[in-house]
Design a protein around this nucleic acid. Sequence first.
DNA 1: TTGAAAGCGCTACCAT
DNA 2: ATGGTAGCGCTTTCAA
Lengths: 334, 334
Amino acid sequence: MPEVAASRRVTSADIAKDVGVSRATVGFVLNSTPGKKISEATRARVLESAARLGYQPNRAAADLARGRSKIILLVLPDRLLGPSMQASLDEGARVLAEAGYALVTQPQARPLGGIPPLWETLGPDVVIGWTTFTPEEVMSMRAAGVRRIRPRPGESARYDQAPGVAEGARMQVDHLHELGHRRIAVAALNDPQMIELQRSRADAAMQRAEELGMETVALRSVDHRDGSSAEAVRIWHDDGVTAVVAYNDDVAATVAGAAIEAGLRVPQDLAVIGHDDSPIASLFVPPLSSIRMDTVEAARYLAAVALHEADGRPVTSTWTALDTRVVARRSTLG
Amino acid sequence: MPEVAASRRVTSADIAKDVGVSRATVGFVLNSTPGKKISEATRARVLESAARLGYQPNRAAADLARGRSKIILLVLPDRLLGPSMQASLDEGARVLAEAGYALVTQPQARPLGGIPPLWETLGPDVVIGWTTFTPEEVMSMRAAGVRRIRPRPGESARYDQAPGVAEGARMQVDHLHELGHRRIAVAALNDPQMIELQRSRADAAMQRAEELGMETVALRSVDHRDGSSAEAVRIWHDDGVTAVVAYNDDVAATVAGAAIEAGLRVPQDLAVIGHDDSPIASLFVPPLSSIRMDTVEAARYLAAVALHEADGRPVTSTWTALDTRVVARRSTLG
DNA sequence: TTGAAAGCGCTACCAT
DNA sequence: ATGGTAGCGCTTTCAA
């Protein structure tokens, strides 16, 4: 049996030797360095050699020489990881990959006992968060050499201006209005992580209701584990509320569930509409009306912003309105 | 207003200068290099200086010199990202962090159009997957310099032997048996990603049922989007099946929902038990019985395996049985 | 117990 | 159009 040589990884020097040029030239063609004129012939030979030898650039070496990691870190709250968000991330990753950046996500923004945040260990060029970072977090990032942070420190995330946020909430209200509801409630979730986004959606909903001349009752947080949802439903119903705008589909399910348990009919006695069109919306009985957003476009924009921060390249895409629409199901239609 | 100097990142050389020792010495104490005797005095001074100056080692440089990235990449199918899995990941990350490793997760194992897998861009020391990797993936990893891969190429993931997998399925069946059910069905999900795990759970359930002298009918996949769940429920009911073991809570919700839509009572006409105790289980009406596993212990074990692969250190923790138990709710209890 | 110095593989500046 | 080469910041062997 022939001895198998422990093969070293192939480096750019190997290619240089193989092709018969300098390592510099190899680097130029492999990075398609702008402003460098390489003859088509050598370019082709280098590329061919790289492919044949199975060359993979050494990230550590490149990072070190370059002074940047070409990593973009996305810090997401757990709850956001619905399927639609997942698809968006793919799209964002694709855009970034084309520019040579890797997208890494850190699932938790919350204080993680004992786990150093990924921005310390990975040294990303850019950190993008869904919510504003605390001063401590920003300091930690700065110390870790992170050059760019979004949302910018001190700058609010301003969800109310983000595409789709207000639209979705408005559409929830519009939908209920069209169905004839005139007195509605807004239901939120007891989750500190999401306060900003919740507030933005709730505000937008309230405002829209007012514009349409509808009556609203005070915002309530519900939790299926305590009695808060049952209590909320009772209060609402006694108060003449006929429909509920829920922060998301989990909240919608909680409310609808409490209503059903209380002997109310959904939607005849209480209609409920959720947000995000997550799996539970179609699995619930009755299926929950919800809002579906095309977050793919948002992800593209986010990626563009990231590249702007990282490379200084102009933001090409625009903060356009998302394709947002109501998915009407039996929790409002009967 | 005073000009703010654009401060360079602090390097180990800065510390060396500050303390008045060599960069090597600094490195020794910062890495607590074994076999090196550093006086307590200098050690303390170095540490103090590092803290005071806010030193953060440069990952790229360290990786390059060391020849390894100290990154462990976990490749997870999307569907697994339930809250319990999330908590487990935190635990795994914590264990790995203590050993100086960063845990990065790649959300999709599936072919990602145009997105280079993270193992190419990050150059992790170890890649851990939930399912077996394809030969192409393995080759790609090898080419990217990944030294360790789990499950080992060619080695099946062997979920049937993984802790908790068989237990959970068995407990589902036991639970139904105790409630007097004697003829049951097993419901799966139409998801290629999960085939291995589904099969393992289904096999375990079937086998347990046989051991208990219960009758089982053929495994069926359900999908709430087509008519398959309604059809399955009808067939099962006509066939005298009184209870269904579902692969997970989504499947359980699909089945229970179809049953309710068909005018059957859950659990009187058809009992359903899910698996994983995900949010939908408690949110559904009626709330779904399910299986809750303490995956934290599993995560610890996984982390230990990863460290073994990475460092060659012995696997301390053992592949123990997980704390797995039935969460009985109204979908089986009535 | 500590220091000097040789790389790690790549990038990018300066020559040619 | 291409090559030489000086680092990037850290790890680690070898000397002192």
